[in-house]
Amino acid sequence: MIKAGYLLSYDYSYIFTSINQIYDEVDKIVISYDSDNKTWAGNDVFIPESFFTDLKKIDIHNKIIFYKDSFYIAGMKPMELETRQRNMMAEKLGLDGWHMQIDSDEYAYDFKKLASFLRKNNFLLKKAEKYPINFQVNFVTLFKSNDNGFFVVAPFKEKCMLITNYPKYEYARNTNKGQTLPLDYYLIHQSWARDEKEIVKKINNWGHKNDFDTNKFLDLWKNLDANNYSEFQNFHPIYDSLWKELSFFPSKNIDDFITLFSEKYPQEKIKHPLKFKKRIKLYLKSLF
């Protein structure tokens, strides 16, 4: 099985775009959210009932499970709470199968190729506790938008931990167990490409709230425009060189961006990152 887990909070509205990319190819989706309407920072978050009604309308195969629990605990750091919620959600999904923890603003276009790769390698699920496997993909990070399109971090080399056969997380989506392997697959991340009010909510409530000077970085973001974006180099807030530069991709909105980007950068057939001899060895071990 291929299972997907979402952490629902202040950016809940983005999830429709995300789910539409993967719905047909996953077997089970769990959407988790705080029973006391709190973020990891302890701030209030309001998710309208109409949101859940609209989600149920698109769940034509009854794949979605809503999971409400106490995910905020006073005195714990936001990242500790994020990791805790991811583990609780993994248990709700059931620890078997391929686990993909994906955020509401992440869009896995042409997901059929990735799903096909995972199903062809189901033998890696047989002894996951003994042979943990984690797959990274390439982020396509959208940093800001204007009326004409999106400013996109380039090149698309930033890694995102996305899939594992051993869903016991130690730091956010990282299990820190077994092998971590890169896949040649693009994951669009809307990230900072939001209006200013949403950005303020993001930096005050996400897991990285205490990892860098968010107000200083917000000022940098505010000053970005079509005239100066080429001056932004090595500007990642934590790991400078991770974001080397910005490019501009013309599009009308996020749906248009996904369509046009997928045409320019189609997902290729995924090559297995494990060497053939290693795959055979693991396959044979899975039989006994």
Results as ranks from 00 to 15, higher is better:
Tyr239Asp: 06
Phe150Val: 03
Leu242Val: 14
Phe156Ser: 02
Met1Tyr: 13
Asn37Phe: 14
Ser145Ala: 07
Ala4Gly: 03
Pro167Met: 08
Lys57Val: 15
Cys160Glu: 09
Leu181Gly: 06
Tyr171Ala: 06
Tyr131Trp: 11
Ala226Met: 12
Ile73Ala: 07
Phe71Asp: 05
Ala90His: 08
Gly178Cys: 11
Lys197Thr: 15
Asn138Lys: 08
Lys271Thr: 13
Pro48Ser: 07
Phe276Pro: 00
Lys278Ile: 14
Lys38Asn: 01
Leu287Lys: 10
Leu93Arg: 00
Pro182Leu: 11
Phe16Ser: 02
Gln101Val: 15
Gly42Val: 12
Asn43Gln: 07
Gly97Val: 08
Asp44Thr: 11
Gln267Ala: 09
Asp96Trp: 05
Ile280Tyr: 12
Glu82Tyr: 11
Asp195Cys: 08
Phe249Glu: 03
Glu106Cys: 02
Arg86Thr: 11
Lys216Gln: 13
Met79Gln: 06
Met76Phe: 15
Gly5Ser: 12
Asn148Asp: 14
Ile65Pro: 04
Val153Pro: 00
Ser13Ile: 15
Tyr283Glu: 00
Asp96Glu: 11
Glu198Ile: 12
Phe151Arg: 00
Val137Glu: 05
Ile188Asn: 01
Asn176Tyr: 15
Ile199Asp: 09
Val45Lys: 00
Leu274Thr: 12
Trp98Phe: 14
Glu170Ser: 08
Ser13Glu: 10
Leu183His: 07
Gln233Asp: 07
Asp225Trp: 10
Pro48Gln: 04
Asp219Trp: 02
Ile73Thr: 13
Phe111Glu: 08
Trp192Leu: 13
Ile258Leu: 13
Phe111Ala: 07
Phe217Ile: 10
Ile19Lys: 00
Tyr107Arg: 01
Leu118Cys: 12
Leu284Ala: 06
Tyr265Leu: 06
Phe249Arg: 00
Ile238Val: 14
Tyr283Trp: 13
Lys120Met: 12
Lys159Phe: 15
Met76Ala: 13
Ser286Cys: 10
Tyr131Ser: 03
Phe117Ser: 02
Phe16Met: 03
Tyr14Phe: 13
Ile280Lys: 04
Thr39Phe: 08
Ile65Ala: 08
Gln267Ile: 14
Ser9Leu: 05
Pro132Tyr: 01
Tyr67Ser: 03
Pro266Arg: 01
Ser145Pro: 02
Phe46Met: 01
